[in-house]
């Protein structure tokens, strides 16, 4: 079974080699005339003000956190979806109701999140 993954490994090596060659090729071929102004941070032609490593809106953290929660829940749906047809015909409604309960619990959290305004971006 693991033999199936050998081509993926080869493709990954190819991709890494391609990326490295591209980055270093331009380093060697391109001209090199650095000066302080050229190397300064681009800020629409103005002198850069401060640093970019500042605090940013908490909403991005909220989105990331909620993503992790929901993504884990989605991962639970995959094995169920793969196995679903194996329940036909006897226990298929059992499988359906079980997953409906799971999705209902997910929905309670989802509604709470919406009502709390966790994703209001204005």
């Amino acid at each position: 079974m693991l033999n199936n993954y050998i081509p993926i490994l080869i493709l990954m090596l190819f991709a890494i080699a391609f990326a490295i060659v591209c980055v270093f090729l331009s380093k060697f071929i391109g001209p090199k005339n650095p000066n302080p102004v050229k190397l300064s941070t681009y800020e629409s032609g103005m002198e850069p003000v401060g640093t970019a490593r500042q605090r940013f809106s908490v909403k991005y953290y909220m989105a990331a956190m909620l993503f992790i929660l929901f993504d884990i829940e989605i991962v639970f749906l995959y094995p169920w979806a793969v196995a679903y047809r194996k329940f036909i015909p006897n226990t298929v409604y059992y499988a359906l109701i079980e997953m409906s309960v799971f999705i209902a619990i997910l929905l309670v959290g989802y509604i709470y999140m919406i009502r709390k305004g966790a994703l209001n971006w204005d």
């Binding site: 331009s26 391109g30 001209p31 190397l39 300064s40 640093t51």
Partner: peptide, 21 residues
């Protein structure tokens, strides 16, 4: 390919190179 490869002086250089890869 023939253009100059500019890395800003204030950038974090290893990550700056790694990201496009």
């Amino acid at each position: 390919l023939l253009k100059e490869d500019i890395v800003p002086a204030k950038a974090t250089k290893p990550i700056h190179t790694l990201a496009p890869m």
